[in-house]
């Protein structure tokens, strides 16, 4: 019982402190700008580009795709910096020096980013409804909420893996940006998956977001939860695999770093 309590405390404190540390350099207004203005501008850009490329009738396709894509802001950037930040700030040695349960530490890094990412997507959908005329009258809101949560979790799974890579590379922002921007193509947020070359389609289906975006589009089109359940289960499975690989790498990197004495070496 004591171990469980300790782990819960560790989880919560790790979740909270890593999140606070992530934005410590910002004032609330700047935080709001990066959480609200940047996603809104990005959404507007791709929605306008999409409607210019096809027609205004396809507006919903782009709004839903890009609203879900916002999950990657927290999922990729937030997660990577939450984990990689320990190395940058010199706290990685302390973490690896404690007897703390590594799985709990690892999950703690993800928790607030999942909540934050899901909130970002909700805000994006709100912008979609208020400013871009997205019609959610036929949409099962609880099912859409579940889709948002599952998609954010799976995206954070990829983010955890990226975060582990941040522990062994100097060019963290290069990797982050590259993955984030490639998701704009590969996830189907802006291009129907069927129109992509076969090799890109193959990659799309092993990435998070792809199935989540497809499920959200079906839900906005009037489908029920049962119809999108296979997609959501697939999305969850993809996220779990990334999370697992990320955790294994995290533990391997710890062992290797300790053995070689390269914990904080850049």
């Amino acid at each position: 019982m004591k171990t469980l309590t300790n782990n819960l405390r560790l989880f919560w404190q790790g979740a909270l402190l890593s999140y606070v540390a992530l934005f410590h350099w910002m004032r609330p207004i700047q935080y709001m700008a990066s959480k609200i203005l940047m996603p809104l501008a990005q959404m507007f850009f791709f929605v306008y580009l999409g409607t210019f490329a096809t027609s205004a009738d396809n507006r919903t396709f782009y709004i839903v795709g890009n609203a879900l894509q916002i999950a990657a802001v927290s999922g990729i950037y937030g997660m990577t910096m939450s984990i990689g930040g320990d190395r940058d700030n010199g706290t990685l040695g302390y973490i690896f020096g404690t007897p703390a349960n590594r799985l709990v530490v690892f999950m703690g890094r993800a928790f607030m980013n999942i909540m934050d990412g899901a909130l970002g997507v909700v805000i994006a959908f709100t912008w979609g409804v208020v400013l871009m005329g997205l019609d959610l009258s036929n949409t099962s809101i609880p099912a859409l909420a579940l889709t948002i949560l599952i998609t954010t979790i799976s995206t954070c799974g990829l983010g955890l893996l990226m975060g582990c890579l941040a522990l062994i590379t100097v060019n963290v922002m290069f990797v982050n940006n590259f993955v984030y921007f490639m998701l704009l193509i590969f996830s189907g947020a802006n291009i129907p998956i069927a129109q992509l070359p076969a090799w890109i389609q193959a990659i799309s289906y092993v990435l998070p977001l792809t199935r989540g975006i497809a499920a959200a589009r079906l839900l906005v089109g009037g489908a029920g939860l049962l119809e999108v359940t296979p997609l959501l289960l697939g999305e969850l499975a993809v996220g779990f695999v990334y999370f697992l690989v990320g955790y294994i790498l995290f533990t391997v990197f710890e062992v290797v770093a300790k053995r070689r004495g390269t914990l904080d070496v850049f």
């Binding site: 580009l49 999409g50 210019f52 490329a53 096809t54 100097v170 060019n171 922002m173 290069f174 990797v175 940006n177 590259f178 921007f181 490639m182 704009l184 193509i185 802006n190 291009i191 129109q195 992509l196």
Partner: peptide
């Protein structure tokens, strides 16, 4: 890496995206 991405890779990815879309 950040600069190389910003000046080279990001515009290329946006070009790819635009070319697929248009």
């Amino acid at each position: 890496g950040f600069i190389v991405f910003t000046v080279l890779f990001q515009p290329i990815i946006i070009a790819l995206l635009g070319l697929f879309m248009l």
